[in-house]
Amino acid sequence: MTDMSTAPSPNHDAVRFAARGSSHFDLLLAMFCVVIVISNVVATKAVEVGSGQVLLGPVQLWPLVLDGGVVLFPLAYVLGDVIAEVYGLRAARRAILAGFAAAVLAAGTFFVVELLPAASWYENEAAYSAVLGPVSQIVLASVAGYLAGQFLNSWVLVRMKQRSAERRLVARLVGSTGVGEVADTLIFCAIAASAIGVTTFGAFLNYFVMGVLLKVGVELALMPLTVRVIAWLKRREPSYYAG
Rank of each mutant, 00 (worst) to 15 (best):
G68V: 00
G68Y: 04
G68K: 03
G68M: 06
G68H: 06
G69I: 07
G69Q: 10
V70Q: 03
V70S: 02
V71K: 10
V71Q: 11
V71A: 14
V71D: 11
V71E: 12
V71I: 15
L72Y: 02
F73L: 00
F73K: 03
F73E: 03
F73M: 01
F73H: 02
F73P: 01
P74S: 00
P74I: 09
P74A: 00
P74Q: 05
P74L: 04
L75M: 14
A76H: 10
A76R: 08
Y77D: 07
Y77H: 06
V78T: 10
L79S: 05
L79D: 05
G80P: 01
G80N: 04
G80L: 02
G80T: 06
G80K: 00
D81G: 15
D81A: 15
D81F: 09
D81T: 14
D81M: 12
D81L: 13
V82E: 07
V82T: 00
V82F: 06
V82W: 02
I83M: 08
I83S: 01
I83K: 01
A84T: 04
E85Q: 03
E85T: 06
E85F: 03
V86N: 02
V86I: 06
Y87D: 10
Y87I: 12
Y87E: 06
G88E: 05
G88M: 02
L89K: 14
L89S: 12
L89P: 09
L89D: 11
L89C: 09
L89M: 15
R90N: 14
R90G: 13
R90M: 12
R90F: 10
A91T: 07
A91F: 04
A91N: 07
A91W: 05
A91H: 08
A92R: 00
A92K: 04
A92H: 05
R93A: 11
R93M: 14
R93F: 13
R94T: 15
A95V: 08
I96A: 11
I96D: 06
I96P: 02
I96M: 09
I96T: 12
L97K: 11
A98E: 05
A98H: 03
A98N: 03
G99N: 01
G99C: 03
F100Q: 09
F100N: 04
F100P: 04
A101Y: 10
A101G: 15
A101D: 13
A101N: 13
A102P: 01
A102G: 04
A102N: 02
A102Q: 05
A102S: 09
A102D: 01
A102M: 09
A103G: 09
V104W: 02
V104K: 00
V104F: 00
V104H: 05
L105M: 15
L105C: 14
L105T: 14
A106P: 03
A106Q: 05
A106F: 06
A106D: 07
A107V: 01
A107W: 01
A107H: 04
G108S: 06
T109A: 15
T109N: 13
T109H: 11
